[in-house]
Design a protein around this nucleic acid. Structure first.
Lengths: 218, 218
DNA sequence: CCTAGTATAGTACGACGTACGAAAATGTCG
DNA sequence: CGACATTTTCGTACGTCGTACTATACTAGG
């Protein structure tokens, strides 16, 4: 059934998608810095340089797995109005980023692939479908995007700093005496106590969306 | 005048601050990925391993130069009210990040040093001095921080993508056909034409601050 | 003078991304 | 059927990186 292969036979048959899938899995397991070409090839049972037949270089591979994350964000239902659509897209993006925390720092920095551009298009289209000035659309777009990325970053940042053991084990070069920073302590406690925790993300998101309507542009 | 040195003499006298200063300079010149221990030692005319007498490892060094950036943010004048203070801190941070673009991705991810904690404290203190609920203080803090970081990232992102030459020279693994994404094209054009350019950062910042007052908490 | 502490470095190891080019299969054409 | 181009795989090797280990040279204190 398997159509005969073309080139020189290897231990396994490779493929762009196979390579990217394995890379995504490895990033999910070991983080971004745990993703190396050599380990990836070993995982696949292939030679290192075989990978380079399908990808330009490691940077392109990383771009590809980031775009895979963007592909996980499902479009909003067709009948949704602009606010529901934007809300849906923001929350779906937020959840995708939490599933792949290594992607958070790359979300806006690396070159966007087709799926991420599609996602941008959907958000912009949703905002444009409201009766808002172009200024307000632009503003709202960045507000939403910043909120998604900023919140995700803060969330995983606190997550890793949560286990006080690790924080003590790795005091770093600095030992900041927190007693001198009462507001910072209060802020940390606020989050620790799970105060805004329930769904702060959605709450602030709705504030942003509601705020857009109030602006001069309707 | 120069007090006699203690240890084995090297070609130059080292020091924590000297090392960090040179590292900061190198990051400013060549970016984060251009900062290597070897080049840093060469720059200083010292041996590579000499650096490790003053710093734990490269990560700690990076933490240190990020904190230097935070140190460049001057506190708000004492007579300013909460809104003026927050505004001042946000804008000063924004400008510091634009002076050191390599620091933007690290701003929230790496372990905060004393100066960054001090900056957080100042922002939180400013917000707390207003008559706002704790919820609103928390919300406002993250809104401001996200805005600062998100805006800086977007700014330098567009800056590098600005020269259309480079964007064409490096088409990457993807070639996204922009014709299918009219809203994205419009959005890019909007920014290209320098529309919101004048001081969009401050404009949106003021919107955020004004929005905080309107919330149930006064 | 001797010992402890301080400061500087050379060497070497393992990991990384990847340039280069050889090699083995299949397809096409005479 | 044979010659050649094309497609795919991969071994080797180079340069770079962070840094563990160790040796060394100086000063201060006893």
């Amino acid at each position: 059934m398997k159509r005969p292969r073309r080139g020189r036979p290897g231990k396994v048959e490779l493929d762009f998608d196979i390579v990217v899938d394995a890379a995504l899995q490895m990033a999910d397991d070991d983080g971004l810095e745990g993703l190396s070409m050599r380990k990836l090839a070993d995982d696949l049972g292939a030679g290192v340089m075989s990978l380079y037949y399908y990808i330009e270089d490691k940077e392109a591979l990383v771009d590809a797995i980031v775009d895979r994350v963007a592909a996980e964000v499902e479009p909003a239902p067709a009948e949704a109005d602009w606010k529901e659509s934007t809300r849906h897209l923001a929350m779906a993006t937020h959840q995708a980023l939490l599933r792949h925390p290594w992607a958070i720092p790359l979300w806006s920095s690396s070159r966007p692939g087709p799926h991420r551009v599609t996602l941008m298009e959907q958000i912009l289209a949703a905002l444009a479908s409201a009766d808002l000035d172009a200024d307000v659309v632009d503003l709202g777009f960045h507000a939403v995007v910043n909120h998604v990325q900023g919140f995700a970053r803060q969330r995983v940042g606190f997550q890793t700093a949560r286990s006080t053991d690790e924080a003590r084990l790795r005091p770093g070069g600095f030992d900041v005496d927190l007693d001198e920073f009462p507001h910072v302590v209060a802020h940390i406690d606020y989050h620790r106590s799970g105060h805004g925790r329930h769904d702060e993300f959605a709450f602030v998101l709705d504030l942003i969306l509601a705020g857009l309507e109030r602006l001069p542009g309707s």
